[in-house]
């Protein structure tokens, strides 16, 4: 069912295609699948939002794409096709070259993601020189330019600052500048605004939006915040307990969520623009991925489950244009 993408015309193929990805972790002598046969596509220039709660496997998926899984984790199966090349089969050296040049990444915690003993200028210049045939002087000019682009005032002067001399918001801007320094085709942003205040978050989302248009790059934004999704994403994949529960363009997802988990997630988010007597909750908690429930992993918390839900893994079924949900009752729920 997978066409040989290497020979297919690249224009029609997605920029990034993750297929049947399974990532396992060894902990305490046991192996458990943190990500279980997950698949999604990202088209060139598109913003895919991956939303999920802690333990949903969303961050692990991003690390797998970057080839940065921790030592006790490994990709057990699947393909990660980037511009038609399977990243999992790429030699380490090629992968290193791809990282930072073609795929950029920004993390949640901008303090630990920057090296405290080098100036931010050094770190950006390092990235540029590493990936491109550019002299240090030219790389430094590019760094100044990038810092100015991400909205750092008096960029030339701040180049010699150390990370600790900057605020959290400024450091995240530096991270963005570094990630974009080589004009990547794809940016992976793992909870890029979670550690930041709401006014700074708004500034950064605006900035990311401007930059991705300017650079024409695709973005995968990983978040637990439905607001960030509503604000920023073109398409959404909802992760639950290591699997994709639902996948849809952003508006249908908010208008007609087909998976009971997505519905619960949307309903349990308090609204800024309306008063509710009581919040809707999803009972229970995320299952332990070391011993996941059989069948649908959401079944134990689901209000509409039937017997069949606990038997087999529900397949992703189409419920609309580009809208799929892993729920055997998704069809009937679309009311």
């Amino acid at each position: 069912m997978t066409p040989p993408l290497l020979s297919a015309p690249l224009l029609s193929a997605p920029l990034l295609s993750v297929r049947d990805l399974t990532v396992t972790f060894r902990a305490e002598g046991r192996t458990q699948a943190a990500v279980d046969r997950v698949g999604f596509d990202v088209a060139a220039g598109e913003v895919l939002g991956i939303v999920g709660e802690s333990g949903s496997g969303k961050s692990v998926t991003a690390l797998a794409v970057m080839g940065l899984l921790p030592a006790n984790g490994r990709v057990a199966s699947g393909e990660i096709l980037f511009e038609g090349t399977d990243l999992l089969r790429l030699p380490a050296r090629k992968m290193r070259d791809l990282r930072g040049r073609r795929i950029g990444m920004i993390f949640q915690e901008p303090m630990t993601s920057l090296n405290p003993v080098f100036t931010i200028g050094d770190q950006i210049v390092e990235t540029i020189v590493h990936h491109e045939r550019l002299g240090r002087r030219a790389a430094r000019e590019r760094a100044v330019d990038m810092l100015a682009r991400v909205g750092i005032p008096s960029a030339r002067r701040r180049l010699d600052d150390y990370p600790h001399q900057m605020s959290g918001g400024m450091r995240q801007r530096v991270m963005i500048a570094m990630a974009l320094a080589c004009s990547p085709r794809l940016l992976l942003a793992d909870e890029p605004t979670t550690a930041l205040d709401v006014t700074i978050q708004a500034q950064l989302l605006d900035l990311l939006n401007d930059l991705r248009r300017e650079f024409g790059m695709a973005v995968v934004v990983i978040t637990h915040n439905m607001g960030v999704i509503a604000e920023f994403a073109d398409r959404v994949a909802v992760f639950y307990a290591g699997r994709v529960a639902e996948e849809a363009p952003v508006e249908p997802l908010f208008d007609r969520p087909a998976h009971p988990y997505t519905r619960g997630l949307l309903a349990s988010t308090p609204r800024l623009d309306a008063d509710a007597e009581r919040l809707v909750t999803i009972p229970g908690a995320m299952p332990n991925i070391a011993a996941p429930p059989p069948g649908c992993r959401f079944a134990p918390r689901c209000g509409v489950k039937v017997e069949a839900c606990e038997a087999d893994r529900p397949p992703l079924v189409a419920v609309g244009d580009g809208h799929r949900a892993a729920c055997i009752r998704a069809g009937e729920a679309a009311a």
Binding site: Q201, A202, N225, V228, A230, E251
Partner: peptide, 17 residues
């Protein structure tokens, strides 16, 4: 004004702090 919107259709450009 900085809080993300609750629905993608409410996206708007707004003066940022």
């Amino acid at each position: 004004a900085a809080v993300p919107v609750a629905h993608p259709r409410l996206r708007r450009t707004r003066p940022r702090l």
